[in-house]
Design a protein around this nucleic acid. Structure first.
Length: 558
RNA sequence: GACCCCAUCGUCUAGUCAGGUCCAGGACGUCAGGUUUUCAUCCUGAAAACAGGGGUUCGAAUCCCCUUGGGGUCGCCA
């Protein structure tokens, strides 16, 4: 680690929804930058929106970050992370701190109360838009007489606090990624810094907190670039120094739209609208009031479970957007971290696959790319495959085990410990995700009696084609298998290979494939000896017998 | 609509700041072969880009301008 130990970065999510990949990448860059310089990385929860913040979401963020391996030195306490001298790290607990700074701005005349109602402002905006003009707050409340203001305040009229933007100067952002960004005088309006409910707005809280928490580098998404002049002006009015800003480009969907945590809701809303669905589907887990709130307000997100169940009812797949989605889909945390780091940054030596330690060693702001990046599932999948193939068998078994514990407990209860491990090992070399063994190995979990054979091409090819056909060979080898006492990979290998040598010109496929189809119901399985051992002797025999019984249906003898 | 940001293979990118070593390199994907008891791997090879137009210069992917295209912001959300 080199450089400046006083470096302090922060990730400051609002606890609405879950950690999505864009946020995760911002957090990762902040983390990597702090680690690279031997500085500190802080986590702060921006819960100043009383309407939308929820406690569980905060916890989800912690778990997602921890899963990725992004640890924070200061912030909310979670496992071994958190603590620190500059807290509290929930903005909702810092109201007194903000109050002090509000007073400071009021006294210096840099902030003033404004009494317009939300309705009035909405109307003014609508009108400006209709006239194709840029809307800016007209400072009406600024020209109120001192008397009127006092009267309004005494009446207890609801009001916000606005920041009086100096409109005579150009603002220059020295962005570490974008370079100089200039904003002309008069571009900014007098924005709100304290809401009518007394809570600070994002702009105010972020400036006060970053300064008090001694944040030196603000690395965040480019959607914040337009806010930066506001923040800089506020810093000057409060007597704070400017941090270094680094605005990272956005992450897009393959179709070019911004990859957003709202994408799932967008998709669901569109489906619901197109199919003219009026209420929550009966077999979904959504109650009427949740449905009403969701359909009534486009900014409301459906809770994860509700969204999943609705998607299942509608028969559509939700895109993977949140870190948790990728976890559940069977991606490895170190792979997602690697891929995310590569979206907009690359090391000077051109390496593509690396771990968090390497990232911390090599990360810098200079090599961050300015242009936006599309999220490429295929490349992520390829990386995941590589990482899985690089794992030791033991590591894979335990990774697969904890994946199953979390998301597919039925797989764990299906096998005894040793067979579970065998199942995992046998699937490793063909797995791109931790879910793949389950996806392609469904037949292991099924009951012997519920295996069915469809007369699709590869099945017929294995069983019906040729002379002798697969069925003939199956029939011939069944007694051999029945006689085998020692049902192990090595014994099966010996027996089946010898049989193939004697009866199929040494062509193993001629006998392996019919057996595979018989025991699995389809043409895909792990290596045949492993498959038979995992299944066990009685299941294997039973399935072959049932398959033989279906011969007439599958290969009708015209 | 106003302001701001961006622009190299289908995608992520190297190269751009310090112009020549770039008829543009890598990765994913695609295509064609090969290995393999299935699938998946694995191996070999191929196609594939400097958005367009003007400048500056002996020389431009690299610097400047315009056009076009994409994106962001314009909330008492963050």
């Amino acid at each position: 680690m080199t450089g400046n130990a006083s470096v302090r970065t922060r990730f400051a999510p609002s606890p609405t929804g879950h950690l999505h990949v864009g946020g995760a990448r911002s957090a990762l860059f902040c983390w990597a930058f702090a680690r690279h310089h031997g500085g500190r990385f802080l986590l702060r929860i921006e819960d100043t929106d009383q309407k939308r913040s929820s406690e569980e979401a905060g916890l989800g963020f912690f778990q997602d970050l921890a899963w990725l391996g992004i640890d924070w030195d200061e912030g909310p306490q979670f496992e071994s992370c958190g603590g620190g001298e500059t807290g509290p790290y929930f903005q909702s607990e810092r109201l007194e701190i903000y109050a002090k700074h509000f007073d400071q701005l009021i006294e210096s005349g840099a902030a003033y109360p404004a009494f317009e109602t939300t309705e009035e402002l909405t109307e003014a905006r609508r009108e400006a838009r209709a006239n194709k003009q840029a809307y800016r707050y007209n400072r009406a409340s600024l020209s109120l007489s001192e008397e009127t203001i006092q009267q309004y305040l005494q009446e207890g009229r609801p009001h916000v606090l606005r920041f009086k933007v100096p409109d005579d100067r150009e603002i220059v952002i020295e962005d570490a990624v974008l370079g100089e960004v200039r904003v002309s005088p008069g571009e900014l309006e007098d924005f709100v810094i304290r809401k009518a409910d007394g809570f600070p707005t994002y702009h105010f809280a972020v400036v006060v907190d970053d300064s008090l928490m001694k944040v030196t580098h603000v690395i965040r998404g480019q959607e914040h670039l337009a806010n930066t002049p506001k923040h800089m002006l506020l810093q000057e009015a409060l007597g704070f120094t400017h941090p270094v800003y680094a605005h990272v480009s956005l992450i897009f969907n393959p179709d070019g739209s911004k990859m957003s945590k709202r994408d799932k809701d967008k998709l669901l809303r569109r489906e619901v609208r197109e199919r003219k669905i009026e209420g929550p589907p009966a077999d979904s887990s959504i109650d009427n009031s949740t449905w009403e709130t969701w359909t009534g307000d486009k900014t409301v997100q459906l809770p994860t479970e509700a969204a999943c169940s609705l998607a299942i009812c509608l028969g559509i797949d939700l895109p993977e957007i949140d870190v948790a989605d990728f976890q559940q889909a069977g991606y490895l945390p170190e792979v997602l971290l690697n891929y995310l780091a590569l979206l907009g940054w690359s090391p000077a030596d051109g390496r593509e696959q690396f771990d968090a330690t390497y990232l911390a060693e090599h990360f810098d702001l200079e090599r961050i790319v300015k242009s936006p990046a599309k999220f490429d599932r295929d490349k992520l999948l390829a990386f995941n495959l590589d990482a899985i193939q690089d794992m030791s068998e033991g590591d894979f078994v335990s990774a697969f085990r904890s994946f199953c514990d979390s998301f597919h407990p039925e797989v764990v209860s299906q096998f005894d410990e040793e067979t579970f491990a065998h199942f995992a090992r046998a699937n490793k070399e063909r797995s791109k995700t931790l879910f793949d063994p389950i996806r392609t190995g469904g037949f292991f979990l099924e009951d012997d009696e519920s295996i069915t054979w469809e007369a699709i091409k590869p099945v017929r090819k294995a069983l019906c084609n040729g002379e002798p056909c697969g069925y003939d060979r199956l029939e011939a080898i069944l007694p051999v298998l029945k006689d085998l006492e020692d049902w192990t990979v090595s014994s099966l290998e010996t027996v089946i290979e010898n049989w193939a040598e004697a009866n199929a010109e040494g062509n193993l496929g001629k006998v392996a494939q019919p057996i595979r189809v018989a025991v699995s119901g389809g043409p895909i399985s792990p290596p045949i000896y492993d498959t038979l051992v995992i299944l066990g002797k009685s299941s294997s025999i039973r399935r072959i017998e049932r398959c033989l019984a279906a011969r007439e249906t599958l290969c009708p003898t015209a």
